[in-house]
Design a protein around this nucleic acid. Sequence first.
RNA 1: GGGCGGGUAGCUCAGUUGGGAGAGCAUCGGCCUUACAAGCCGGGGGUCACAGGUUCAAGCCCUGUUCCGCCCACCA
Length: 892
Amino acid sequence: MKNSEETKESIHDLPKAYEFSAVEKKWYEYWEKHKKFQATMDDGKPSFSIVIPPPNVTGVLHVGHALNNTLQDVLVRFKRMQGYNTLWLPGTDHAGIATQNVVERQLAAESINRHDIGRKKFVERVWQWKEESGGQIINQLKRLGCSCDWDRERFTMDEGLSRAVREVFTRLYNEGLIYKGDYIINWCPRCHTALADLEVEHEPTDGKLYNIRYPFTTGDGYLVVATTRPETMLGDTAVAVHPSDERYNNLPEKAVVLPLVNRTIPIVFDAHVEREFGTGALKVTPAHDLNDFEISRRHDLPALKIMDDSGAMNEAAGDYAGMDRFACRKKVVEDLEKLGLLEKVEEYQHGVGHCYRCQTVVEPSLSKQWFVSVKPLAEKAIAAVKEGQTKIYPKTWENTYYDWMYNIRDWCISRQIWWGHQIPAWTCEDCGELIVSNIDPEECTKCAGSKLVQETDVLDTWFSSALWPFSTLGWPDKTDELKIFYPTSVLITSFDILFFWVARMMMMGLHFMKEIPFKDVYLHALVRDAEGRKMSKSKGNVMDPLLVMDKYGTDALRFTMIAFAAQGRDIRLSEDRIEGYRHFINKIWNAVRFSLLHIRDSQPYAIEEIEPSGLALEHQWILSRTNRTIAEVHRGLNEYRFNDVAHALYQFIWHEFCDWYLEWVKGDLYGDDQEVKNTGRQVLFTVLEIIIKLLHPITPFVTEEVWAALPGERSSIMSGPFPEEISAWDNSEAEDASALFMGVVTGLRNIRSETGIHPSAKVKGFVICPDQAKGAVLQENSKAILALTRVEELQIIAEGDRPKGAASYIFNEIEIFVPLAGLVDVEQELAKLERAMDKVSLQLKKVEGKLGNSKFLDNAPAEVVAGEKEKQETMSAKLAKIEESMERLKHL
RNA sequence: GGGCGGGUAGCUCAGUUGGGAGAGCAUCGGCCUUACAAGCCGGGGGUCACAGGUUCAAGCCCUGUUCCGCCCACCA
């Protein structure tokens, strides 16, 4: 952007504290207006693409979204600045059941239900709701700073995606990979729909195990079966025992009478029965239990459905018809007891399936549904990860992925709701032919009849999500978008939808694109509350990211998220952590404010102009540290080690750049030497620009704001380039010399602090440094030492008499003194030295132990041995100095 | 029943091929030193869950124990 004079004027009076609110609004509007997020169709540049995990259209931004999208935005901004043709494709998911529930609640408020208005009107209502109130999360993502290409926003029910869904359905059907069949599925009596296995949550529940007597037809004797759901006995069509169970070798007869309904049912022998459980006799209810259903198929048993879609008993339940399933359970137990057929009731804890959308207890139920045979698709999805075409981070999730893929079962994709992609299958009323087609057929393909009735079921929402990486890029057309951006670079999502979404995208992508949908998958952790509990509305422990952004600013929230995003570990988030990082944002702000005082009249410098070799130590040091930070940021981002990036930046900016460099360089900037001053400005300016750029992906708002405040014509920081490593800046010698310098400064400060010398009191420093070269370094930087310690005068000698009556500090072989004119507290000094001595002698003992061990000398690598020897020397020197000091003190 | 992750400072957590235990916050002491009190300077604080083993050397590798959390699974 053009840096107008007006902007510059305001910079001169930057407020003391960073005021994020107006800044965030201003810059987001600017970015959007200038299309800074737009991907181009330029395939000459390397591309980088991410498809957003589409939030539910009913969704409201929660901290999980905040984490997920911050991670994506960091990578996207990083790659964009690096010059990639970057696409972050946004959108929302129609979220079948969830959205339907929302609108049904609306209707309920008007005392009507969806059946009152019919399917067509209902779906219209949902669309209307979507247009009016849906997708508010999109604006919330914008608040978060997400740099999505909003012109490409998609919705899983929009025209293009619906076309992709039909195409996929039709092709899979024609390939024999989609079929319709009678099978036990999970039925939610509240949502009135089938659910996939994955959509059922098993929760340990305290229940009862009822032992029920099933009399033999003769009336003489009985079998005892155990069940947790006695009401299902009304649908029993057999009792099963294990074929080699000796207890049942010599049964008087092969049938029993089902109590209450007095139906004679056979006893069958099936190896599935667990002999150790209960009495080893299993009641078989084919229509309401998966295992029983399978047994029934093996023994050709009939299936009897005894419940309706709402979980109430149907006519087949005889006298119990019309009762709710749980009321029926009670009644059945009572009646059995009256008949003396209830042998015993035990407390029993077992897993009970609940609907993942409404928590209603799910009923296994025999039903005609549509399924995908996923096994053949899974094979390719397994191979792609095995071969490393797609890499999963953290790697430990690969096992979970394989495990699920290997044991995958057919996917029930039909849902008996109204909101979603209606299954593109029609039945001819004339001849009964089933027609599956990607376009609405006009007549029967078999009899040319025109009375075609479409399936009423819709598809599982995850069916359309599974196509997301290619449907959003224009598939089934052969688009340039697909050519440029598919496969996408990385998928960033939470581990809890690894099966729901990631696995299915892998299968669909490989099947239809013949190529993986993404090269990397980064699975991040869950955000929990400060006590480690999952955040949920019912617990009342949810943190609203929007309120957090209002209070602390978006950048603070983002930085916090990144700082805690360690691989493979959940994040415990609390407000004070975010507050802590707000301080960091403010620190950046003030570092820039200070720098601007000195560089605002300067011309910008090209980084290449910096030639470190002739520069003063502070510059060589900060350039070296800067370069190491650049390297660390690159490494962290490329390896998805986000927390490393945040910590490297935090450490470097606060403790190296601000605490040391800015204080150190003040001597140059406030001095009279014009050349020194200019060099100081140049290096300061250069490093500052790099810091702001390195931070930009994580904290986009504050960085754009201060970037614009820097002198010179400059476009948005988003345009990059991102800092690349400059190895010529690496300088271990300068880092060593700085460590020496800092050690002496710390020593002098320590003395002042420990002896209670007031900061403004004038004192002299005295340093004995036996090593000539080190002494020279200290001498060269003595002015800075004075400035940083507020010591008035500093004497550095190689050898000589120690001052009498001085407080001391020993830093390796260097002795530091502050003469106290007889005011030295001998006791206190001795105590301090003793503490130091304890520490050093302990370390020395360890080192000497190693060096005295011939096995260590023989086996350890030479550089390790050399390192230990060097340590030994420094430590013994230090120890000797400490002992001497103590002696002197005692004789004072 | 399988599988995975975790136990490191008061709290929350880093610690990437084994080689002198770290950060943030909190705490204690001193400072309004002209970028920042949302700040500066200094200090204290850990048998790295427990027990064995491998190794010259273990927070890190191996075995076992224990506690916590999560995921998967068709013993009713």
